[in-house]
């Protein structure tokens, strides 16, 4: 699973190894029925991380505010279900996507005019604004108590969300499959290549006449849309939304997952959440202090020694193995 860089000489066909995540996901469905709710959470976070990879890894936009779109999607789906009595999961998801897209284009058009620290600051400020709104608009959001009473009708009127989480798992898997397919397609397209061009040298992209700003706004909006969908999914599977969807820790955690897996290589967004969320499930509740200490240390180590994340390490091991006679 080497870095998926796209480009004009990259073969866009799906390699056999790329079926591995899906085989694992289906195998997990049958082999680990008692872990399906964790599984669904992982699938959602993969989709969420994938959306972040698009802007951080490919377009090179450093953001701490991606939870704004995830959180908005989560609340929109939740409010539709709990307050407006709209139980259809497809409608909820579409609304979450639309909300993510609208906020994405609105905020993206503003913040992408700036660079570096100012941009980082603005992403943080926007998320903080969203958090404040969710916190204060208690009539809609339930404020600090969270929004409960989220009711999700059967999918297409046929598949009921069961207590074992089987439907939710497969539903999330399908959503991820569609999201992955779209993101992959985009990365291999001329548009995706032009994004890596902006990441590598935005000055030169301007000089070859590329509308850099609009490209970034577009990818930012697409990414926000996917994050909105991921947020909608988390509401539907948890049947609850809390303020933590907007928290800085959650945005930070997402970045951690992506970095852990590997940035700018599609499957880093798969590996990171799997490792992170499983480790969290095993360790975090028993040893919360050690958990935070552990991720902190890991982040520092990854930045210092393994900038490609887990997949980057795998890559270099593979290269070494191949070099051996």
């Amino acid at each position: 699973m080497s870095a998926h860089a796209g480009g004009y000489s990259a073969d866009p066909r799906i390699r056999w190894i790329e079926s591995l995540p899906w085989i694992v996901a289906v195998a997990a469905f049958f082999a680990l029925p008692e872990y399906l709710s964790l599984g669904a959470r992982i699938l959602i976070y993969i989709l969420y991380a994938l959306s972040l990879d698009l802007i951080v890894g490919y377009a090179g936009i450093v953001t701490l505010g991606h939870s704004a779109y995830f959180g908005l999607g989560a609340y929109v789906a939740g409010i539709l279900a709990a307050k407006a009595g709209i139980g259809d999961p497809m409608v909820q998801l579409a609304a979450a996507a639309a909300a993510g897209a609208l906020l994405g284009i609105g905020t993206g058009a503003i913040i992408l005019r700036t660079k570096a620290l100012t941009l980082l600051m603005l992403t943080l400020a926007i998320t903080s604004v969203m958090l404040e709104i969710a916190n204060k608009a208690t009539a809609l959001t339930g404020g600090a108590d969270g929004l409960s009473g989220v009711i999700v009708a059967p999918i297409f009127g046929l598949f009921r969300f069961d207590i074992f989480g089987k439907t939710a798992y497969l539903y999330c898997l399908l959503a991820l499959l569609i999201g992955w397919w779209l993101v992959r397609k985009m990365i291999y397209s001329p548009f995706g290549t032009s994004l890596t061009g902006v990441r590598e040298n935005s000055l030169r992209m301007h000089a070859i006449g590329a509308p850099v700003y609009w490209r970034l706004v577009l990818v930012y909006t697409l990414s926000a849309t996917i994050a909105g969908v991921a947020g909608g999914l988390i509401t539907q599977t948890n049947q609850f939304v809390g303020l933590n969807v907007f928290s800085f820790e959650s945005a930070g955690e997402l970045l951690v997952m992506l970095i852990l897996g590997g940035v700018g290589r599609i499957y880093g967004a798969f590996v990171g959440p799997v490792v992170y969320l499983i480790a969290q499930d095993l360790l975090a509740k028993q040893f919360p202090e050690y958990w935070y200490f552990g991720i902190g240390t890991m982040l520092v180590l990854v930045v210092m020694f393994a900038r490609g994340g887990i997949l980057g390490i795998l890559d270099s091991i593979l290269v070494k193995l191949r070099r051996r006679p």
Binding site: V56, G60, V62, L64, A116, L117, L120, G252, L255, V256, I259, V263, P288, E289, Y290, W291, Y292, F293, I295, G296, T297, M298, L299, V300, V302, V303, M304, R307
Partner: peptide
């Protein structure tokens, strides 16, 4: 290093500090 790396590294430090303080 790039902005992203500095941001990640310092977030890592925050996580460590939070854990140590809590401990």
């Amino acid at each position: 290093a790039s902005d992203l790396e500095q941001v990640l590294f310092t977030i890592g430090l925050i996580f460590i500090a939070v854990a140590v303080a809590r401990f």
